[in-house]
Design a protein around this nucleic acid. Sequence first.
DNA 1: CCGCAGGTTTAGCCGCGTCTCAATTTGAGA
DNA 2: TCTCAAATTGAGACGCGGCTAAACCTGCGG
Lengths: 232, 232
Amino acid sequence: MQERAKESGGRPPQAVEDYVKAIYGMSERGLSVTTTTLAAELRVTPSSASAMLTRLRDAELIVHRPYSQATLTDTGVRLALRVIRRRRLIESFLIETLAYGWDEVEREAELLSRAASELFVERICERLGNPVRDPHGDPIPSSDGELPAPGSHLLGTLEAGAIGRLVRVWNGDPEVLQYLDERGIGLGDRIEVLSREPFGGPLMVRVGEPKEGRVHGVGPELAAVLSLELEQ
Amino acid sequence: MQERAKESGGRPPQAVEDYVKAIYGMSERGLSVTTTTLAAELRVTPSSASAMLTRLRDAELIVHRPYSQATLTDTGVRLALRVIRRRRLIESFLIETLAYGWDEVEREAELLSRAASELFVERICERLGNPVRDPHGDPIPSSDGELPAPGSHLLGTLEAGAIGRLVRVWNGDPEVLQYLDERGIGLGDRIEVLSREPFGGPLMVRVGEPKEGRVHGVGPELAAVLSLELEQ
DNA sequence: CCGCAGGTTTAGCCGCGTCTCAATTTGAGA
DNA sequence: TCTCAAATTGAGACGCGGCTAAACCTGCGG
Ligand SMILES: [Mn+2]
Ligand SMILES: [Mn+2]
Ligand SMILES: [Mn+2]
Ligand SMILES: [Mn+2]
């Protein structure tokens, strides 16, 4: 007989974790999770995704009527949060401690988070001072599965006059992060919405202190991945 | 078509690296590498080892006539040294930076070294100050495949009167390392062979400065895994 | 010098996670 | 209601890295 889950410290197979994490992320972004969308997300054929949905249903990690949408069960959510915690702590570690760049961190964090034990993750967590957000501003679930409720708002949904601080850059796209770096925009910066140009035009924002900050035009795609925590 | 070596950054399959590393280690210890001994080393059935030997021969990583012994080719040695470098640097990192214990480091280093990229390994190497030996005293191959020639001698082979410094503990057995720790014996310590008791008796050694050091009796099994660099 | 035990290889299988290609279901428009 | 394209599922395969069982060398002891 083949020994099950031999090296992984009693963790589910990697593919299971990958799919559960993807489903969690898609739900978080408000996307509907179907065979096709999930397959696209993971760059896998629909039949692979279909087979995994069946498997996840059998394991009671999702609810899924055939030909319909999938939702994580409570168990599924808990698993997703464990996976996400590992991933975000490792991202933090690579960037803070090993000076990784935005473009290097994705791949490495993906691979390492598959191999790293809970022990490793908890050690680097201590070493980083038990952070609550990763370098993208993504919240880090606690080891007992609590996710700090952020109460933040997408820049793209705000009206002129809104003022807040940048707390999160969604999706971690290296190009976006690089772009922000180049313009000196970082997490924690004060951002003021000056105006919304119509017809898909940019959002004009001031980054920095009330009168001094630089003014930037932010297109809809960028505005859709930046979250602010509003003042007051 | 199935994409080959997708996530691993152009590395050979893990099993190939595992076997090559095992063959290197066995040769280093003077063991002959046959289907059976290799299978025992890797806790695998002889038929698995046999299949892999064929595969390694086809890849020209070993020389192997059927029913005979296997030897690494130059290419095989180079691969082994790359694998060993990764492994020893990660061990060093876990112990020095993340305060891993002797009993925890084996498993974690094994898993992480499979996933870690060259970039990761080179980053931690810098961070550790380009070490030449790992915490067991095992030499770390350089990134261009040179192995610092140690010129050390197994304690078990020395005669009374020999004096040297402990530079290596072979095999990294946690029990041995724990035992040494408890007695305050560590890498770099001065060791003087006082006498060899006959009939499989212990080696009497002084650990520490000429007259002050504590005297220990070292059995043959322990003497077989400790290497000294001799004075002069 | 012959036979046989034991080491070695081969044959056939499994589970994983992927693929391709075919069959099936669905629901929206005619 | 019927039809049909698109979404979904299913069937069959593959490479990996194991396993078991059987066939096959080989060299040592009689
Ligand atoms: Mn993952
Ligand atoms: Mn992140
Ligand atoms: Mn290895
Ligand atoms: Mn070591």
